[in-house]
């Protein structure tokens, strides 16, 4: 949609100035370490903001969690604490974070602090308290299908994050349709990895799609690979033509 009318454009600018995304420059941008991806987002995702990550289906929850953690690991300096907020029910459903597994993904487990709330409401309280703590680097909030995390609640979280500079990554259920004040919304699915010799599964592959972005980036789909040596995203190494990845790339192009 083009801003045909000057007053409409002015109004839009005023609304933008009111929103939390307006001052996204204050805390800098979170780069993915992959130029093709950063370019589409105008340099990266805003730090000190709330971003939502949704799995494409229930079975992709682990991939979504991995994506959120990867962003969290890139959000601050290498020694900052990453808080993982979860609830008993979520940990039962998706399993508990596993230290050695985090280490193998290049996400230092000694940076992580794990808070398990007994229920949804307590979890949101913890989330809002932790976003007010400027000493944190990032917070991964596993909210699942939490109904209470609505527009008002997410706006509150966004304001807290903007004030403190903590980057918040909210993990939601795959079928969440609740509106939110998040700066961006991602849908994540597992992508077939590039197999290693001997038909062994290779590096973590993710199929990302940007669903919504407050800064005005257009929605897109992209397949990426996580390079845990550099703690950065990279393009999948195409050793042989993989149908699914090829499909992905044609969509991108």
């Amino acid at each position: 949609m083009t801003d045909s009318h000057p007053s409409l454009a002015r109004l839009k600018r005023r609304i933008d100035a009111l929103g939390p995304a307006a001052s996204s420059g204050r805390w800098g941008l979170l780069s993915f370490g992959l130029e093709a991806l950063d370019a589409r987002l105008g340099g990266g995702l805003a730090k000190g903001a709330v971003h939502e990550v949704l799995p494409a289906s229930g079975l992709d929850a682990a991939s979504a969690a991995a994506f959120a953690l990867m962003l969290a690991a890139r959000a601050g300096d290498v020694s900052g604490t990453i808080l993982w907020v979860s609830t008993d029910a979520e940990l039962r459903r998706h399993g508990a974070p596993y230290g050695p597994g985090l280490a193998e993904l290049g996400l230092a487990p000694d940076r992580m602090m794990l808070v398990t709330a007994p229920d949804e409401l307590a979890g949101l309280k913890v989330a809002s308290d932790s976003l007010a703590c400027a000493g944190l680097c990032a917070a991964v909030i596993e909210a699942g299908a939490a109904k209470r995390l609505d527009l008002t609640a997410s706006r509150r979280l966004a304001l807290a994050a903007e004030k403190s500079g903590v980057t918040a990554l909210i993990l939601r259920g795959s079928d969440t349709m609740i509106a939110s004040a998040a700066a961006s919304r991602w849908q994540v699915a597992a992508a077939p990895s590039v197999p290693l010799p001997g038909q062994a599964p290779g590096r973590t592959g993710l199929s990302l799609s940007l669903v919504r972005h407050r800064g005005g980036a257009r929605p897109f789909d992209m397949c990426v690979e996580w390079d845990h040596d550099r703690t950065a995203f990279s393009e999948p190494a195409l050793l042989r033509p993989v149908p699914a990845v090829a499909e992905c790339r044609s969509m991108v192009a």
């Binding site: 399993g95 508990a96 974070p97 050695p100 597994g101 280490a103 193998e104 487990p109 973590t204």
Partner: peptide, 20 residues
Amino acid sequence: PLASHPTPGEPPMRPLRLFD
């Protein structure tokens, strides 16, 4: 503290989430 030493070039050998 759990040391973090991913093997360079190898894919992750341990899972991100564990069921107990």
